[in-house]
Amino acid sequence: MDDELLIVEDLMLLLLADDGSQIAGSKVLHCVLPAAILTELALTGRLEVHSHRRVGGTRIHASRTNADPEIDPLLAEVLRAMGGSEHSAYGLVSALGLDVRQSVLDRLAARGLILRETRKILGVLPTTRWPSLDSRAEAALRDRVTAVLDRGRSPDARTAVIIALISAAGVYAQLSPRMPWNAEVAGRLKAIERGEVTGHDSTPATQEIIDEIARAVFALTSSASSAPIL
């Protein structure tokens, strides 16, 4: 692994079972993955927020619309979809219409972190699994999440974002292997999701955007089934 993973890639590693047969929250990935990309844009200073109470609350827009040679293609795709307009977080997460699941899996495979295995069921129906090939990145992420949720450590902004998203989407209990679970963990999850506990390196403006995105994910996924079917 030559460089840092995107938040959306870290999130997929966490959601993907080690044997590659299941993705926790597979039915809400269309919301959670674009939300992860939006939070990355916020943390890297590419989104700005304006509050307009007369038109429904916080509005988000791209801080720059010109080409950025340093930006990752996945992030650039979302900025292009946003254009120069202002958006609500709910509107962004629900209406971007970007199916990035396959792109993220392919990127992780290209990095050598997971392996693509295609087989045929009964010799006819193709099925694809994505088993872990190099578990170091996921293990490090799980350690950070556990330290925050189970041991009360102050999170960095990236870890806080990932926790907020898996809490908002209701998929924490579906992660495989299972993560620590007790009343304190449950309370810590919700506190981070609601922005009551924030990343120590997150600015107030950035945190406002992240909180709005987490609320949008919760609203969009709370009534959806998130059974771990690949």
Rank of each mutant, 00 (worst) to 15 (best):
G187H: 15
A140S: 13
S176D: 12
T159C: 06
D211N: 08
L43N: 11
D150N: 05
A164V: 09
L6S: 11
E193T: 04
E48A: 15
A227C: 14
T44V: 11
D3A: 15
L220C: 05
L122E: 14
A42Q: 10
A24T: 12
T203A: 07
Y90G: 08
G195E: 00
S176E: 10
A214L: 09
I210W: 09
M82I: 00
E86I: 08
T39F: 01
I229A: 09
A36L: 09
A164P: 09
K27M: 07
S85H: 05
V145N: 14
P69L: 09
L141Y: 04
R142K: 10
V171F: 14
L38K: 00
E9Y: 00
P34H: 07
A110K: 11
R194S: 13
P73C: 04
V197I: 14
L5F: 10
A224D: 10
D156I: 00
D106Y: 13
I229E: 04
A160K: 08
I37S: 11
N66K: 14
L149V: 05
A62C: 06
R151D: 01
G83P: 03
S167N: 04
S21F: 07
S63I: 13
E9F: 01
K190T: 11
V55A: 14
S167Q: 05
A168G: 14
A224L: 15
